[in-house]
């Protein structure tokens, strides 16, 4: 890069600098224009979530600038107290945390076996596991509903923990296997020569060295489960609304509130708060994970 910069003729006259600035103007206009385009929908909802009902009904969100004193927290107070958002928020946490942790462990063992153990049919089996990514969740609903019915699991958190573990595994095994497989083989060979058992090698070497991949995977699975509507709707939402997560309650509010949009705006922001916090805090891992394993549908 430095040689490239040096090779450029040093035309540093004012006119030249001005022309260069002007030349970059369209670029900035397009980038900033796109940023505004992407932000406006969210900002509109955000503003409306703080505006009173009468204002939301009679004018667009941009009018808040004319009446900044109108802004209120009453929408949030209502949806948390009467709208059922607070219990749903707690449910979402109860559902998401175990449904993130369980598949990580299960996948890590399998990934280690696929990466560093020798057994006949290994590659075929691995392709078969990754191939399960083609199965849309829809094909599993009816038989699993019946299975859960037999064990009385419908409507329970356990139903979602188990289902999300099964659904998340093909991608988790794929991502972790690729990461563990790319670790230097000398490490594992010398550990074996030193007499370390596979258990020791796994917990002392493979697992600590795979932290970046595990972190990315944990964020994915957390966001996937937190944001999931379909699976929660099928196994819990339809049978036991008391255990329903935020997405289900929010989807119900859309149809039941109809025009009660000021509440809807606040409810949507409560549902978005956790993913947004995760995103801002852990963006780096999230992006790295996406780039390294962009196969999930």
């Amino acid at each position: 890069m430095t040689s490239v910069a040096a090779a450029r003729p040093a035309a540093r006259s004012y006119a030249g600098a001005f022309r260069r600035r002007l030349g970059t103007l369209p670029k900035h206009v397009v980038v900033i224009g796109l940023m505004v385009l992407w932000l406006v929908p969210t900002i509109g909802l955000f503003v409306n979530s703080f505006r009173p009902a009468a204002a939301v009904q009679s004018s667009g969100w941009w009018n808040f600038l004319a009446h900044p004193s109108q802004l209120t927290l009453s929408n949030y107070q209502y949806v948390l107290a009467q709208g059922g958002l607070l219990p749903a928020f707690v449910n979402s946490l109860f559902i998401t945390i175990p449904a993130t942790i369980i598949p990580l462990f299960v996948a890590a063992f399998a990934a280690y076996a696929f990466a560093w153990m020798k057994f006949p049919g290994k590659n075929v089996l691995f392709v078969a596991v990754v191939g399960l990514l083609v199965v849309p969740l829809q094909t599993t609903f009816i038989p699993i509903l019946q299975l859960y019915g037999t064990f009385g699991l419908n409507g329970q958190f356990l139903a979602l923990w188990l289902a999300h573990t099964g659904y998340g595994l093909p991608f988790a095994v794929y991502l972790l296997r690729n990461f563990m497989g790319s670790l230097p083989s000398e490490v594992f060979e010398s550990a074996e020569i030193d007499g370390a058992s596979p258990v020791t090698a796994f917990f002392r070497l493979a697992l600590p060295m795979s932290v970046p991949a595990i972190a990315a995977l944990a964020i994915f699975q957390f966001l996937f489960v937190w944001n999931d509507l379909l699976v929660a709707l099928i196994y819990v939402g339809a049978t036991n609304p008391d255990n329903a997560p935020l997405t289900v309650i929010l989807a119900n509010l859309v149809s039941s509130l109809g025009s009660g949009w000021w509440y809807l705006a606040a409810a949507a922001f409560i549902a978005m708060s956790v993913p947004l916090a995760v995103f801002f805090a852990l963006q780096r891992y999230f992006v790295r994970g996406l780039v390294s394993g962009s196969v999930k549908g």
Partner: peptide, 19 residues
């Protein structure tokens, strides 16, 4: 800014766009 909507749920995105 461009990446942010990917972190939220389709349900929340739907509410945003209903507005």
């Amino acid at each position: 800014v461009i990446f942010l909507p990917l972190a939220i749920s389709g349900t929340a995105a739907s509410v945003i766009w209903l507005f």
